[in-house]
Amino acid sequence: MTAQKNSRYGMVIDLDACTGCGACMVACAVENNIPPAPESANERTGITWMRVYKVLNGKSFPDTQAVFVPMMCQQCEHHTPCISVCPQKAVELDEESGIVAQIPVRCLGCRYCMTACPYHARYFNWWDPVWPKGMEQTLNPDVAPRMRGVVEKCNFCHGRLQAAKAKAAAEGRIEIRPEEYQPACSDACPTNAIVFGDLNDEQSEVSRMAHQKDSFRLLETLGSEPKVYFQSERPWVHHIAEQDFASPEKETVHG
């Protein structure tokens, strides 16, 4: 794997192995210094760069089946919707890694990108980031907390990529090894349901899995070429590819 040769970092998520435990969600929050929710936050206003949705097969009891779908920024490669609408150039596609980067200091907070994102994978900071007293001592020193009024999202733990590059450089290498760069979610997954790597590297596990017949991408017909693939042996699960299943949870206010 060579970061210099324009990598295309991506993921394959095995939906048959995901138990919906949520370890990826909290590991992501710890790694990226995402604060706990204030009391008034809810499913619409909370910040979860990685969110696991429970999606049902649409059948009634007792024929109901469920699948847990981990959902984060799908790192769209082509006509990336959030990039095309940002008036501030606060979203950029890093040609070298294929990662869609969010630059909080440029963000104006207009939330146009949130409207444009077909995956509902962008989050707005409605509140100042606050940790209970003393808990700020547990923050990750490699990531700066974002301020109120800006949008944020998954960046495949970009800080870890930089750390891996620095480590490789210190050892006189340009290439980074696959095990040196893993996002917090794939690192934390107890069933290894999240496989991460360079899709451009034909020898990589992620590239091999992405080309298997059980693999699919969400809302592929939009043509935005997301770099997150999903996999399942269950035929009905493939139907979720064309569903906007995140919308009810993200856009509905209950109660």
Binding site: G22, M25, E43
Partner: peptide, 15 residues
């Protein structure tokens, strides 16, 4: 449980 578990209970419908 950690206050950060709001991610699973309050900020998403997972638990």
């Amino acid at each position: 449980i950690s206050p950060l578990m709001t991610k699973l209970y309050q900020e998403s419908g997972l638990r």
